[in-house]
Nucleic acid binder design. Structure first.
Lengths: 248, 248
DNA sequence: GCGGTGATGCCACTGAGCGGCAGCAGATCC
DNA sequence: GGATCTGCTGCCGCTCAGTGGCATCACCGC
């Protein structure tokens, strides 16, 4: 890079994107110094790029010198057709499901080796799940994740196993053989479960969203009482089929 | 800029952002050539930056060489707290309003001299509005726009008038005096109307979303039958007050 | 007043980024 | 089938935009 660059191979664009990568659901507001630290950029470089992003309204600066994602990045981001279409098809059914059960409903898509939460609908009284829209979930420990894993090419499972199964709770499946067996069952039944494997006290059911035979995402519902989970499976599966028919 | 740059004063970042600016609700998929043309960048420059964006998953490349907004830009964009919080507070009420009336409900925020649609909930049978989530609406021709205008500092109105009132239909208000009078009425009643001023055959009511006295956005409902609009005003105003209380 | 933390401004150096151009692949037309 | 067009890909020499260290400034708590 121009000037007295330390490490070669990094472009201006990559630095700019590194700054954006600093933000996640747990870090929606950051100071200049925090951004510099998280992105690994020198302070002056980070500042210059942040100023440019701010002028474009990609970031907005608060009175206490913290930065947050701005309106322009939001405006561009919501255009992402993959999420946009799925969300539009799923939202009405998610609300129906939420209204009928009073529980938390979420729709996810595959993003690398994780599930990315595209939309969440929660009743006031529902279980407070850690996940937010835009947040990531492990594939092996969640019902929606297992759906994605079961209906994706076998390569994905191999990559996930290679990366290692992370334990979330005492109930998380970390044995490859056990996961593989469960995925076979998910494929045949079309429904996946998670029994406190992600969060203690939370149980969930999910079904894949398929359109024309190809996987678009998964829809799941999270409940507290373990007894209710079986009776919800049919509802979730019905919703997933309906969404699959609507989505392009 | 480095190399044989034609125009000075343009940074790499600005070029990268210019590429993102090419995308809008009417143009969610573009080819390399289209992006170069829309952004005003030379083909080679556009390509290099697009490749970098694509590697980062900010754009995704389709089999027919078209590009669309990718998962990573979406993931960052949804973190925008302004939209995120408002959306979260508004969604349940929007659905209630939609379910009760069977019409299109939308929530907007102020973005420069226009209104930006943050969320839309439409029943199957509802009026097909041109606007999509992420799309922009004029402040003078829509009910939600008038709300934003009426409850913003007077400067905004002056800037809007200075920029000129654009005509959308034969009913659009383009006379500054008439707009100013209507805004006074909106301020006192807390509700704004649009009678086919944006789209022929479409009528709408909107109310501002205020939290702690400061304007957060506006919620509106669009209907076809002109007679129904008055009976909906109370429902919209109720929803707006409730959202204002919830949103931080 | 004094030390600590974090934002801001300046500046000399240089390689990353620039864009013109040639080449190639696929579609369309006659 | 070959001529033409359109749009993507890859190369390369030139040079100034971007870099990051450092000094300064603003604010806060003690």
């Amino acid at each position: 890079m121009a000037g007295n660059t330390g490490v070669a191979g990094s472009s201006v664009s990559s630095r700019l994107l590194a700054i954006l990568d600093c933000f996640d659901p747990a870090h929606t507001e950051l100071t200049l110094t925090e951004i510099a630290a998280r992105s690994g950029l020198p302070l002056s470089t980070a500042r210059r790029l942040i100023v440019e992003l701010t002028n474009w309204n990609g970031l907005e600066r608060l009175v206490d010198n913290r930065y947050r994602i701005g309106i322009n990045l939001w405006r561009i981001g919501v255009l992402a057709p993959r999420q946009r279409d799925l969300r539009e098809a799923a939202l009405p059914l998610m609300h129906d499901l939420c209204a009928a059960t009073g529980e938390t409903v979420q729709v996810v898509v595959l993003d690398g080796l994780e599930a990315l939460c595209v939309e969440k609908v929660a009743a006031e009284t529902a279980v407070r799940t850690a996940t937010e829209v835009g947040g990531r979930l492990p594939l092996n420990a969640t019902a929606v994740g297992k759906c994605l894993l079961a209906f994706s090419p076998r390569d994905l499972l191999l990559h996930v196993l290679e990366a290692g199964l992370q334990r979330q709770t005492g109930y998380t499946i970390v044995q490859p053989g056990r996961l593989t067996r469960q995925l076979r069952q998910v494929r045949s039944s079309g429904v996946a479960y998670s029994h406190e494997e992600m969060t203690l006290g939370a149980v969930s059911v999910a079904a894949p969203i398929l359109s024309g035979g190809i996987l678009k995402g998964a829809i799941g519902i999270v409940v507290r009482a373990p007894g209710r989970v079986d009776s919800l499976a049919a509802a979730v599966k019905t919703a997933s089929l309906s969404i699959g028919r609507t989505v392009s």
